[in-house]
Design a protein around this nucleic acid. Structure first.
Lengths: 106, 106
DNA sequence: CTGGTACATTGACGGCTGTCGATCAGTAGT
DNA sequence: ACTACTGATCGACAGCCGTCAATGTACCAG
């Protein structure tokens, strides 16, 4: 996926199919209750390893791995391997870019 | 669906399953390229009737009807019947509430 | 090297979603 | 009433998505 998500706002003018597809990808990554909770847990704690997510989410380890992968591919989560663990944090700027694409003030 | 979408922000604290489910509904409504373009067309023109949407979206009349319905049920679009036509406009406040739920400034 | 731990991948299953053709319901004009 | 037009609904189909058990991979301690 591109890294832009910068220029067009939904409320300014009709989106091109390409712009819409790119925006939809990011929105789809957040449009799941489990991923929203996962994301908010990471945001609240700053840094979380995968193994700390299974219990609060009530999902199996493969499912948690699947969701972290989706959020990371959407550019919303950043993962860093430290030894056996992967520490997840909020990818800076991406959420703000999303809000701007949704018509938020620059 | 509730009409709130007011209080919790994804970045402030861990969302409850109920808060996450409600937010996910609105995000899912926007997480489709066709609906994003539909929404942006309505936003750009102010008011559009359904019959003016089929051509720019390249979708059949039942499909357009399906998408307007999804957006309206999510509280993002408002429809008003005038004669044979239904005029669609952006539901005020809903998008701003979504941005706030995504951590935007109040 | 052996065993254990953290995470990824695979395969399978059920459910949801986008799409269209066909049909139905409501409105307006003749 | 009849016709024409806008929009909703239904039925069906293909494709995608969330989920988990099983298995694979990478890393560390001993």
């Amino acid at each position: 996926m591109s890294d832009s998500l910068c220029c067009p706002s939904v409320v300014d003018a009709a989106l091109t199919p390409e712009e819409a597809a790119e925006l939809a990808e990011v929105l789809a990554a957040l449009a799941d209750p489990v991923r929203l909770r996962l994301f908010s847990i990471v945001a609240a704690r700053g840094e979380v390893c995968s193994c700390e997510l299974e219990e609060p989410l009530g999902r199996s380890q493969p499912t948690v791995s699947h969701h972290t992968r989706v959020l990371a591919q959407a550019g919303l989560l950043a993962g860093e391997r430290r030894g056996r663990w992967i520490w997840w944090s909020i990818a800076p700027g991406r959420l703000q870019a999303l809000r701007r694409a949704l018509g938020g003030a620059p």
